[in-house]
Structure formats: structure tokens, C-alpha cells
């Protein structure tokens, strides 16, 4: 393989695996900036992956090639509905955020495999989808010498969209009134309340955005990588997205960058065969690298990478 072919393979494989993580990690950042810890990202991804697959299988005859793209939206919408459980529990009913998030992680696989068995005659997995999100070549851009073949040929369009989402999210969180208020209720809900900001509403908003993006993230997984749904479709990606969000210091662009880095780590076992120095390294080191890196980063950046001040703290009016 020529160098540019190897680079193209590395780049596109990285992006394919990074895309679900980018969406989900950004979603997590929204929730935590509003003050609600969300360890339920894994569960949200499972629900997104499941609903997208069911939609795709059911409506492929109606929407044709556009089906997987519409499925992403459906995955996001169902993600919102599912995440409302977390929102109601933590914001309205003052539940512990970790317990409620863990409930999402336990409930999602049970519910989705249950429904899969009902919809698909007792089997624990769905059939393979016919229309999936394949690779994409940017017309025109692929003609750019050297960079064109590497960056813009047979690559993942959905990953490029995810990066754009990262930029949009940064703008929304840091440059708009809504974003400022959302972050305010996560830093100091009592002060925000005094200024007339509806704390509950902005926290609901934060959690619902995490449901939308986590659902899309899971849908991307099933619509572009696994191509069906089973109990093992989402296996740790939600926790990896959580790690990416922390590695990215709760910042949407940071989370995006970290997710791409973790995407690279996930794709290395697949592409290491082509890269001379990596052939002899066992896959296990690539598999555990994202998790070890996250711990190391957390330890090193102590005091520098801190979560929003009121992250995980329930706000009870008149209590503080």
C-alpha cells in the first residue's frame, strides 16, 4: 500500500469510529454544563441505536437511500424521550444523578432487547439493514493534490457533520444567551435563580440535548458500523464518550478532539496491520489506552480541568 492509501485508511477509519463518540460526548457536555451528571450516555446510545435500526428496517421501502439519515434523527428523538426519565428523576424528583444515570444504563439494554425479541420473532438481534451510511467522497475537494485523496476521498460524511456540530455547540454554549444561562444554572443555580433564570427549564434543556445527541451517536453506530441491533451493538462507547468529554475538559471542541483521538485508538487494531511499527503490538493496549489516558489526564489536570461547580448538585429552591 502506498503511503497516501495508508493515511487515507487511517484517517477514514478513525473518523468512522469517532463519529458516534463525538455526538455523544458533546451531548454529555451539555448535560453537565447545566449541572446534571450524565453517566447514562451508554444507555442513551443503546436506545438511539435500537430505534434507528427499527425505523430503518421498517421504512426503507418508503425513503430508500435517505432512510439511514432519517434514522439518525429518529434515534435522536427517541433518545430525548428516554432521557426525560433521567431529567424528571434528577431535576424534579431530586434523585442522585449517578443512580439515575445507572438506571438508564440498566434499563436500555433490557428494554431494547425485549422489544427486539417481540418485533423480530424472538431473536435477540435485528436483521441487517439494507441501506446504511457508507463512505463519502466530497465532489471537487477530492481533486486537491495530496490532501484530497487523504482527507476527502471515501471518508465519513457523518463524522464531518459531527465536527461541525462540535463547532455549533461551542457557539451555542459560549456565545448565546441560552448557552450562558444553561452554564449559569450548572455553576451557581441559586444565583441564576435570583436573576430570574428558570433553573429547572435550563437543566431539562441540557439533559434533553444530551438525549438528542447521545441518541444520534448511538444511531450512527448502528447505521454506519454494526448495521443491525443486538445487545453488543453498543459496548462501552457511551463510557468512552463520557471519558472523551472529561478528557476534553467539558468543552465541546475539546470533547470533539478527544473523541477523534479515541476513534484513532479504536481504529488502530483494525489498521495496525498496515503500519510497520504497530504490527507486533497486541490489540489490548489500544483497547485500554483511552481509559488509562483519561485517568492520567484527570490526575495531571487536577484543579485545571474541573467540572461545572454545581455539577451533580440538586437545586432545591430556598435551600441554599
Amino acid at each position: 500500500m502506498s503511503t497516501s492509501m495508508v493515511l487515507m485508511t487511517i484517517f477514514s477509519t478513525t473518523l468512522v469510529y469517532a463519529a458516534p463518540l463525538i455526538f455523544t460526548a458533546i451531548g454529555g457536555a451539555f448535560s453537565e454544563h447545566s449541572g446534571i451528571i450524565n453517566v447514562g450516555l451508554e444507555g442513551i446510545m443503546i436506545v438511539g441505536a435500537f430505534s434507528a435500526t427499527v425505523f430503518n428496517l421498517t421504512f426503507v421501502s418508503v425513503f430508500g437511500a435517505a432512510t439511514p439519515w432519517i434514522s439518525l434523527v429518529i434515534g435522536g428523538l427517541v433518545g430525548i424521550v428516554f432521557t426525560l426519565l433521567h431529567a424528571v428523576a434528577t431535576i424534579t424528583l431530586r434523585a442522585n444523578h449517578i443512580i439515575s444515570g445507572t438506571v438508564l444504563n440498566l434499563l436500555a439494554p433490557a428494554l431494547c432487547v425485549f422489544l427486539t425479541r417481540i418485533f423480530y420473532s424472538g431473536k435477540g438481534q435485528t436483521p441487517i439493514i439494507d441501506q446504511s451510511i457508507g463512505n463519502f467522497t466530497f465532489p471537487g475537494l477530492d481533486k486537491i493534490p495530496i490532501l484530497g485523496p487523504i482527507l476527502f476521498t471515501k471518508t465519513s460524511l457523518v463524522a464531518y457533520l459531527a465536527v461541525v456540530f462540535g463547532g455549533l455547540s461551542w457557539y451555542l454554549l459560549y456565545k448565546t444567551n441560552t448557552g450562558l444561562r444553561l452554564r449559569a444554572v450548572g455553576e451557581n443555580p441559586a444565583a441564576a435563580d435570583t436573576l430570574g433564570i428558570n433553573v429547572s427549564w435550563y437543566r431539562y434543556l441540557g439533559v434533553m440535548i444530551s438525549g438528542l445527541l447521545g441518541g444520534i451517536g448511538g444511531a450512527v453506530m448502528s447505521q454506519s458500523i454494526t448495521l443491525n441491533f443486538s445487545a453488543s451493538t453498543i459496548s462501552g462507547q457511551g463510557f468512552m464518550a463520557l471519558a472523551a468529554m472529561i478528557f476534553g475538559k467539558w468543552h465541546p471542541m475539546g470533547a470533539t478532539g478527544a473523541a477523534i483521538f479515541f476513534g484513532l485508538a479504536q481504529s488502530l487494531p483494525i489498521i495496525s496491520g498496515y503500519i510497520p511499527g504497530l504490527k507486533n503490538i497486541n490489540d489490548v493496549w489500544f483497547q485500554i489506552a483511552p481509559y488509562v489516558i483519561t485517568i492520567v489526564v484527570l490526575v495531571i489536570f487536577l484543579g485545571k480541568a474541573v467540572a461545572p461547580a454545581a455539577d451533580g448538585v440538586n437545586y432545591v429552591k430556598g435551600d441554599s
Partner: peptide, 27 residues
């Protein structure tokens, strides 16, 4: 240890250690 000396959230580290254990034991 990380919690005591570095203030690192045990929620995050135990989640990460879960997956390190899974992949390492499998390996």
C-alpha cells in the same frame, strides 16, 4: 488512592478501571 491524594473523582476512575479490567482479563 487517586481520590485521596489527587482529588480525582472515583466515579470516573472506577468506570475507566471497569473497562481496563474487562479488556485486560479477556486478553
Amino acid at each position: 488512592f487517586l481520590r485521596a491524594y489527587f482529588g480525582t473523582s472515583e466515579v470516573i476512575t472506577t468506570i475507566m478501571l471497569n473497562y481496563i479490567a474487562l479488556y485486560f482479563v479477556n486478553f
